Each structure stands twice: as C-alpha cells, then as structure tokens.
Computed example of a mutant assay.
Amino acid sequence: MGIKPSYIKSIGTALLTTQREYFSNNFDANKQQLSASASIDSKRVRNRVAGYITRKINTKRHP
C-alpha cells in the first residue's frame, strides 16, 4: 500500500505498548476496540491505525 504516515505509526505503537492484550490479528475486532479505547474522530484514521496494528501483530515485529 505504501509508506504509513508517522502519526499512524505513533498512535499504533503507543496503543500496542499500553493495551496489547486487547488487540488481535483480526482487523474488524481491532476497529471495534479502537472505537472503544481511543478517541479517534476520523473513520479513515481509525481504519488505518487498526490496519497498522493488525499488520504488526501478524508479522510479530512488535517487541
């Protein structure tokens, strides 16, 4: 898809470090969790962060 903006990475990384146990490798579940745990007003930004988190969990590159 391309290079992710730094704000997507920073939000996703911060959420993974603080709330790792709430996220899974399912994109739709991560979207629902983001709606509940973070105050992201834009649906597009929420979906991009959910996709970033899903990709990080699936590739196991997060410490």
Rank of each mutant, 00 (worst) to 15 (best):
M1D: 09
M1G: 11
G2S: 12
G2K: 12
G2V: 06
G2Q: 08
G2W: 04
G2L: 07
I3P: 02
I3C: 05
K4H: 05
K4R: 09
P5N: 09
S6Y: 05
Y7S: 02
Y7A: 01
I8Y: 01
K9P: 00
K9A: 02
K9F: 00
S10H: 06
S10M: 11
S10F: 07
I11T: 10
I11A: 03
I11H: 02
G12H: 02
T13K: 13
T13P: 00
A14M: 12
L15P: 01
L15D: 00
L16K: 06
T17P: 00
T17S: 14
T17E: 13
T17N: 13
T18F: 07
T18H: 11
Q19F: 10
Q19R: 12
R20I: 04
R20Q: 05
E21W: 08
F23V: 02
F23Q: 01
F23L: 02
F23N: 01
S24G: 02
N25M: 07
N25L: 03
N26R: 04
N26W: 01
F27D: 09
F27S: 09
F27I: 15
A29R: 06
N30D: 09
N30M: 09
N30F: 09
K31E: 08
Q32D: 14
Q32N: 12
Q32Y: 04
L34I: 14
S35T: 06
S35F: 03
S35M: 11
S35N: 09
S35H: 03
A36K: 14
S37V: 14
S39K: 15
S39Q: 13
S39Y: 12
S39D: 14
S39A: 13
I40K: 00
I40F: 03
I40A: 02
I40E: 02
D41M: 07
D41A: 10
D41H: 08
S42E: 13
S42K: 08
K43C: 05
R44W: 07
V45E: 13
V45C: 04
V45R: 05
V45K: 07
R46E: 11
N47G: 07
R48V: 11
R48W: 11
R48P: 01
V49D: 02
V49A: 04
V49N: 01
A50S: 04
G51R: 10
G51E: 14
Y52H: 02
I53P: 01
I53L: 06
T54A: 03
R55F: 06
R55C: 05
K56I: 09
K56C: 13
K56Y: 05
I57D: 03
N58S: 15
N58H: 12
N58K: 15
N58E: 15
T59L: 11
R61H: 06
R61S: 12
H62W: 11
H62T: 09
H62A: 08
P63K: 14
